[in-house]
Design a binder for these strands. Sequence first.
DNA 1: GCAAAAGTGTTTTCAATACACCCATGG
DNA 2: CCATGGGTGTATTGAAAACACTTTTGC
Lengths: 222, 222
Amino acid sequence: MSSMKVDTILVETLIGIFTIDKGKIKILMMRKKTDPYKGYWILPGKFLNIDETLEDNITDVVCDKLGLPSMYIEQCYTFSNLNRHMDNRVLATSFIGLIDNITLVLKKQELSDIELEWFDIYSIPKTGYDHDKIIFKLIEYLKKRIINSNILKILFPSDFTLPELQKIYEQILNVQIDRRNFRKKLVNLGYVIDTGDVNEGYMGRPAKLYRFNEEAKERNLF
Amino acid sequence: MSSMKVDTILVETLIGIFTIDKGKIKILMMRKKTDPYKGYWILPGKFLNIDETLEDNITDVVCDKLGLPSMYIEQCYTFSNLNRHMDNRVLATSFIGLIDNITLVLKKQELSDIELEWFDIYSIPKTGYDHDKIIFKLIEYLKKRIINSNILKILFPSDFTLPELQKIYEQILNVQIDRRNFRKKLVNLGYVIDTGDVNEGYMGRPAKLYRFNEEAKERNLF
DNA sequence: GCAAAAGTGTTTTCAATACACCCATGG
DNA sequence: CCATGGGTGTATTGAAAACACTTTTGC
């Protein structure tokens, strides 16, 4: 545990894992148990070994280190500021991961040695290192992707209501959307399909249930 | 010059520099003078030193190694396949660079120790390493960017005709565009401004000269 | 006057936006 | 019956796409 400076460049991966929990989009963070930044929150990740790709490495982080099911992942950006870490020179390649809450709850293993918590993307706690900047970039990346693709379907694998889906778009993009126009767009462009079922048992009129159309071609929304 | 395997991970940068030469979009490649891949064409780049960021490093490549003026650069993707290099483990962070031909010709220095050539983006020569795959990804990235931003203005710093500009969109996107609709879109969205001048001295009717509107807000074209 | 290349206008279709009222359920 | 939340329709505006003829120059 010395602070001897290594004269080689190290590479780490970092992942922002997003899920939807009770209608809110959340990002998973890990509480750091050792100095530096002890007690601060950081993105999960680990150093790259010589015998693994960045993608293999981040899959390991997800499955082995975090005890989560394997999930959809995209590479985002590589950060290389000189002072990212105190003692060593460390590059960080960042990823987003998307996992639906049902799979998450079913398949996750509780690991006792790490402290994980899901945070609202606009209420990020005090972060260690430059992870605040990295999270900002990951959220910007996610915004672009939900506009120019239909990756949100990963977070909605089963039936959902349009108001639920709309609230997620509104949270991520940080805008207000007209309910009627939202419905028209998603349905007319063929992104979602009416299942014929409704969502009963809540206050107010039951909402129709939809699912994502696997055949829909990706378009720019908004 | 041994082939001893180093047990650390190295990081290199690679850049696809694009310019427009006689109405064609071109990418700059470098002929490799030593084994492995002697005589093959590769993207310019170099290994990352411990005291520079990826962006500093790639700027050095452009200015010092290639003798080109400093230019507009964006990071694209980090490649980490295990077998990218034969002897060492080398990650590659790739960039695109954009430079207009006028600045290029004015400010480049001829360096005798490197062999550079501009290639049509659809006629890439035999490449060393995995640079063919990297070039493919860089071109895909460039496609996205010319659709969702106005970065093409970097390649057209001075007056240009709409047919010239259209041909570049057509080449990069690999599509045919209707002349009338193209003009309507670019002019109506405020991307380009009529300078009042015309381009005389060529066959056929002289074309009007336009320039990019610095104030135009970025929109999705096509 | 002919070839080459550029400019222009109209129509149709579709998406984007703005906006207000009715409906189905739970309590 | 009322509160809650969801569903629906219309009108306007603007962009997208398809399409053919005219204009200006060089030779």
